[in-house]
């Protein structure tokens, strides 16, 4: 988790719920590639056409509220999202994303500093956020040691495999 990552921002408002991130009609899917095709479908139908690996989501408060569906985290991760920055996150979504190795950073007021398409640079270790397009800067809350350990393992699944002495892929 050393060094900054860069990506293009998609920006949304407050209370983006899991039904908007991943509609209930597709919950019988499990293959991440199929799940990724419906990412953000109810809030932004253009998202799947435009998203590229390494892109970032910026949002207001309570991102990921609503149902417990892990699909909401799977779809963003599989669509290539590198990090989500928001005023706050709903708790089940938070756990799901971290478990999958998708970093979430709490960064108050970030949605006001970023426009869709801005290039962001984010340092997960320090929380430093730089908007390369506008020059604005912000600082996200540091991740807890517990969460950092999961992310550094690439998610909870590789972490548990390692703990159990099982081989970890790539």
């Amino acid at each position: 988790m050393k060094g900054a990552i860069s990506g293009t921002a998609f920006v949304y408002g407050a209370n983006v719920d899991t039904d908007q991130i991943y509609p209930g009609g597709y919950l019988d899917l499990t293959d991440p590639e199929l799940v990724a095709r419906h990412a953000m479908e109810r809030v932004d139908p253009d998202f799947v056409k435009e998203v590229k690996p390494g892109d970032m989501i910026v949002a207001g408060a309570n991102f990921g509220c609503g149902s417990s569906r892990e699909h909401a985290a799977v779809t963003l991760k599989a669509a290539g999202i590198a990090v989500v920055l928001a005023d706050s996150f709903a708790r089940i979504f938070y756990r799901n994303a971290i478990n999958l190795g998708l970093p979430l950073l709490v960064c108050t007021g970030i949605a006001r500093l970023v426009k869709r398409g801005d290039l962001l640079s984010v340092d997960l270790a320090t929380g430093a956020v730089i908007n390369r397009t506008s020059g604005a800067t912000a600082t996200a809350e540091p991740l807890s040691a517990y969460v950092m350990a999961i992310l550094e393992s690439g998610g909870v699944k590789p972490m548990i495999r390692k703990q159990r002495g099982l081989p970890v892929e790539g």
Binding site: S68, R69, A73, I92, R95, N96, N99, V156
Partner: peptide, 13 residues
Amino acid sequence: TGVGATDLAIILM
């Protein structure tokens, strides 16, 4: 309390 699929899998294990 509610959790996602992978958290529940950890409980199964």
